[in-house]
Nucleic acid binder design. Structure first.
Ligand SMILES: NC(=O)c1ccc[n+]([C@@H]2O[C@H](COP(=O)([O-])OP(=O)(O)OC[C@H]3O[C@@H](n4cnc5c(N)ncnc54)[C@H](O)[C@@H]3O)[C@@H](O)[C@H]2O)c1
Ligand SMILES: NC(=O)c1ccc[n+]([C@@H]2O[C@H](COP(=O)([O-])OP(=O)(O)OC[C@H]3O[C@@H](n4cnc5c(N)ncnc54)[C@H](O)[C@@H]3O)[C@@H](O)[C@H]2O)c1
Lengths: 205, 205
DNA sequence: ATCATATTGTGTTTATTTGCACTAAAAGGG
DNA sequence: CCCTTTTAGTGCAAATAAACACAATATGAT
């Protein structure tokens, strides 16, 4: 458990999402077989992954879904809600701020920033857009560990450096470029075009 | 070249993106070393990946960036622009439709669909929102191969089945759940919460 | 109580992926 | 022209990941 491979960790949120969906559909137990079919991963793989963290199932009967969900929430450290800041209040930043799907999965946007004087001070959904100049200071003060980055590619590295200076350790990057960060900072990339290009390879022209 | 591992293909768009960014910054040659530093992948890995498709560099001098970009565009089949349909014109669908970053990377939204009678027929950016009832027929007729899915989780599988029926072979899914599709159909997932949860694991509470 | 069935957790094997290290080639300087 | 430096492409080894297969155990039916 001290040294779980990244690739195992990366699958856990997918299991969690599928399990939470099962609960919505009124199910209370499942098996590695059934879960595997839902998420497109082999049953053996799922059992191996989970075995990295303990024993959560029962032979013959499978897994109790609420218990497994709870265990995964603990493992992923999302049983409490993390404070997150959002930088870049353009088209995408607005959509993200209005999205209701974060908080019930462990994340709460607590502040949003922009550099455009016309936007700073305006209000959206109870949020006042703050000046990015205050980002480092604010993040340090509130001990913010996570951020979502929605600025144009041209300023993404600059803002990333500010986030790192402010003590942020995890960045969800929507800008279409690779970021340079210290090894202790994690980045996850959201670039729909990368997804489309990965699939285009397999199409016939 | 007939059987390149998925994982290799999945890295190519990342290389491409970094190379295109280098061009913007006025560079015309690079090395596996330099590219590797930009994207956080070892130089050896990059050389191995590219060697799956041919020889693109020159010993001693590295890679000519425009040539390598062109080669990657060919390999990924994005040197032409693919027609894509968008289903689900809510908050996110609107933001995606207005986003200008698709077409210069190989993808063009040609139609958008919704099921809400209040939305069908309304106009956004020269697009008329079409009735999802026509999706299968339209997709077949226009031989659409790619789609972006922005409907709520509760209707995502239903719409997916329509897309498959319409002949779509690649789906970019924004709904927070795993989709069931035939083996010949590819899906890429965009779920920001999954990204955040993957990082939360590494944070200290 | 016994048996058939289901299903976990895991040791072992197999497959895949990455990294290493070297050869070959290209460029530039003196 | 020769030497030094740089760097691609690649065979091989090491590391990592996935699949297999089975003992152990739980359930329910007869
Ligand atoms: N809109 C989409 O659907 C979409 C989809 C995929 C990716 N993206 C990417 O997300 C990012 C944002 O996209 P968008 O459409 O919202 O762009 P946008 O231009 O509408 O918004 C960018 C915002 O960032 C602000 N900004 C610029 N520099 C800043 C800085 N240094 N500090 C703080 N704020 C700064 C701008 O003032 C603006 O409000 C881009 O990188 C884009 O490529 C957007
Ligand atoms: N808004 C965001 O920033 C964001 C972020 C991440 C993920 N998502 C996900 O993206 C999806 C869309 O999000 P949203 O905020 O735009 O939701 P939304 O409710 O605003 O929009 C959903 C749209 O889909 C349409 N729809 C419903 N059923 C349909 C059907 N069968 N056929 C065609 N259209 C149908 C609805 O009429 C509506 O217009 C959701 O699954 C959401 O979880 C959204």
């Amino acid at each position: 458990m001290t040294d779980v491979p990244d690739i195992v960790v990366s699958r856990l949120p997918v299991y969690l999402r599928a399990l939470q969906y099962m609960v919505i559909n009124g199910k209370s137990t499942t098996s590695s077989q059934e879960l595997g079919e839902k998420v497109g991963i082999s049953a053996a793989q799922i059992r191996k992954d989970l075995s990295q963290f303990g024993e959560f199932g029962k032979q013959g009967t499978g897994y109790n879904i609420p218990f497994l969900i709870d265990s995964l929430l603990q493992i992923l450290k999302v049983e409490k809600v993390w404070d997150v800041v959002l930088v870049g209040m353009g088209e995408l930043g607005h959509a993200i701020l209005r999205y209701q799907g974060f908080v019930n999965r462990g994340f709460n946007i607590v502040a949003c920033y922009d550099s455009d004087p016309l936007k700073i001070g305006t209000k959206i959904n109870n949020y006042s857009i703050l000046d990015v100049k205050d980002l480092v200071k604010d993040a340090k003060k509130a001990e913010i560990k996570m951020a979502m980055l929605c600025v144009p590619a041209s300023s993404a590295q600059k803002v990333t450096d500010l986030l790192v200076e402010g003590g942020v350790l995890a960045i969800l990057n929507y800008a279409p470029l690779s970021l340079a960060v210290p090894t202790y900072v994690r980045v996850q990339y959201i670039d729909p075009v990368i997804g489309l290009q990965r699939m285009a390879y397999y199409l016939n022209k």
